[in-house]
Design a binder for these strands. Sequence first.
RNA 1: GCGAGCGUGGUGAAAUUGGUAGACACGCCAGAUUUAGGUUCUGGUGCCGCAAGGUUUAAGAGUUCGAGUCUCUUCGCUCGCACCA
Length: 817
Amino acid sequence: MNKKYDGKETFAQWQESWKLEDRYNFKTIEKKWQAIWDEEKAYHVEPDEKKDKFYALVEFPYPSGAGLHVGHPRSYTALDVISRKKRMQGFNVLYPMGFDAFGLPAENYAIKTGVHPAVSTAANIATFTNQLKSLGFCFDWDRCISTCDPEYYKWTQWMFIKFFEKGLAYKDKIAINWCPSCKVGLANEEVVNGCCERCGAQVVRKDKEQWMIAITKYADRLINDLDDLDFIDRVKSQQVNWIGRSEGAELDFKFGDDKLTVFTTRPDTAFGVTYMVLAPEHEFVQKYMGKFDNQAEIKAYVEATAKKSDLQRTQDDSKTGVELKGIKAINPFNGKEIPVFISDYVLTGYGTGAIMAVPAHDQRDYDFAKVFNLPIIQVLDGGNIAEKAFEEDGPHINSSFLDGMNKEDGMKAAIDYAVEKGFGRSKVNFKLRDWVFSRQRYWGEPIPMVYCEHCGWQPIPEAELPLKLPEVPDYHPNDEGESPLSKAGDWLYTKCPKCGAKARRETDTMPNWAGSSWYFLRYCDPHNDKEFASKEALDYWMNVDWYNGGMEHTTLHLLYSRFWHKFLYDCGLVSTKEPYNKRTSHGMILAENGEKMSKSRGNVINPDDIVAAYGADTFRLYEMFIGPFDQVAMWSDESLMGVYRFVGKVYNLFKKVYKDIVPSDKDLRAMHKCILEVTERIDQMKFNTAVSSLMTYVNYLSGLDKIAPELYSTLLKLMTPFTPHLAEEMWARLGNGNLIIDAEWPQGDKALAQDDVVTIAVQICGKMRGTVEVPANASKEDVEKAAMTLDNVMRQIEGKEIRKVIVVPNKICNIVV
RNA sequence: GCGAGCGUGGUGAAAUUGGUAGACACGCCAGAUUUAGGUUCUGGUGCCGCAAGGUUUAAGAGUUCGAGUCUCUUCGCUCGCACCA
């Protein structure tokens, strides 16, 4: 540990002993302090009832072969800054790190090279760990976890079984999004513009048996519970949008011997229905096929639709379709017979896969009606339906008992009528679909289920967890969509846990969103082998107080993990409804020309190079100074140099510190101003301006001949979150025997930060005409009097009548003439 | 199309939330020191003008004693969702 200044030598001699002729040598300083932190376990935390806890969380990385990207440290440094400050303010801070280690790249690498994913992943984790340590984050490395560790995924599997037991995990044959390139099924959330989020290949539909998790059962709660959370608005609105709640009604139309049920948000427009449309996949199309007059035409259209990808189906908004000739539907509101069509503009997965068409008040129906020459009946007054559908609100017309009503009354009356006559009911629908949870891949958690011919799907007994990944001869998935685990030989077959008959294991694995759905809980108690985490640990550490991560996870990981946590809450396994109190998001870091950094463009900045050339402290400080935290930022080597110069200046300032110097009032003013600004700006994540406050203060200190120790040690404390190594080093050089991270965060004093003379702007009719210096908090009259003495003011008001003078204390004086 | 947001010097950006626009930094210019230079230090730097001064926050209008900030219109950009009935 540090030698402490014991007063046996003069401070000047002590300072001399630090070889002041040396330039700022970040390499030795950073290595030295990283070793000390490691050795002293400076960042290890345990629950401590005497202290308030603070749980800071950043999204753990996927340990890719490419190593750490400059984007990762933006988020990590931000919460490192917050964590360090909170710790110095007396909180017991948990700031953990781990690895989201299951995933496709490791598997693709294995296919190419034959190296087992476990081997390459372990090597990558080692690299990442070194890189993260070289940046000096205050992670508690004793709590490091990895989702591919059997001791970890044991509990992921255990939780899956809970989902199964509660009926929320079920197997279903559905048309899924199939990526023909990755040969894997994707969740809706993983499909971007009809393409695979990962590889960009066009996604096709494929019917497959899949494990599903019923996230839709939580749709309402996932929306409503957002109200009490401190999430940035962008995140809230994107989640609300994605879940896509709409209120309306289901209505039953007569069709053949059946009821044809539709969902509509406007049941009050039912008198304007002139036709109906089914999705080509709708069950009635096949059921009644024998009764249609134009079967060949219908079959051809159904086939053509099946061949289309989702992208083709949605990109082309021209309306096509075929009438189901031979059967008419009957509108239950007025008994009218109406034609029924199939068309691909009706989606099979939303609502009931069928709609009632109101062409007068829905542009899509209007377009379709124009193509097929169908009648258009206006039922809401307004607009010009000769040109286009009228989609706004107006009083009902041509609608029997609804005539004259507004939307609200009309809705209520229409639903009441439908309920009374037994052909309808109010209904809420969501865009959100159940979570497709199967992946036809090797490097993921095995789904702990077996299939028995007598007993159906059965979970394996808890005692057999973790169900470890078996060795396989070959990691290739195949075109039929069979997982590599189907080649796992003996592993495949086992006994049915219920009847003991021969049973076959599930060969699909979990998506890599599984492990990350609950990792924040494991951090609370990472070595527990009896439970996923003890109740005591969870009660002390949860909730996460502040979670920072990328916007790209808003409708994926963030939504999934909120859902997962709510499920655990319902099972009585956690005691809070939501896992995260606060969610913020960082902007991406782009290359110098504004392009995305990518290997193929060759413009990737490697953090290791920056650390080697300028040091971790400069790198961290630069990432905080680069621009507003929540916005995209462009990397700039020149700006980085500016920050490096600043760090060097702070180092050199030590040479001007003298033990017996007493700070002046002006010095204290600068210091307290800096404390107040930095403290506030860190809390608001305005890191860029927090750094500029530090720069202003340092510029001030540079102007002094001799610096009082108090002024310098305060600077060091304020810089600890940003440049922890330098702060520790200089703190030690000031003669302190403890770590600066264990020092107290300085208290800013507003009164001491107040200037005694203020400059007031003098305006005439709102135009700036000059400034005057007056004592702080000068009276209105004094300010006015001083303002009148300005040459420029006297000239401007000469011969004019002064109508009003507005004085804002310490700010402005506006003379109205 | 719908939803969210943005537009300020040569560049990255500030602006106490309606009160001196351009803090802080990069770059540039000039000077000093120096190993020839990259280093370091000092001063200058929105635009027009020698200056006094004028002018300036995408464009236009409005509210106000006062607008980068609030309201409306137009233009431009970014992100998310997208035939969701």
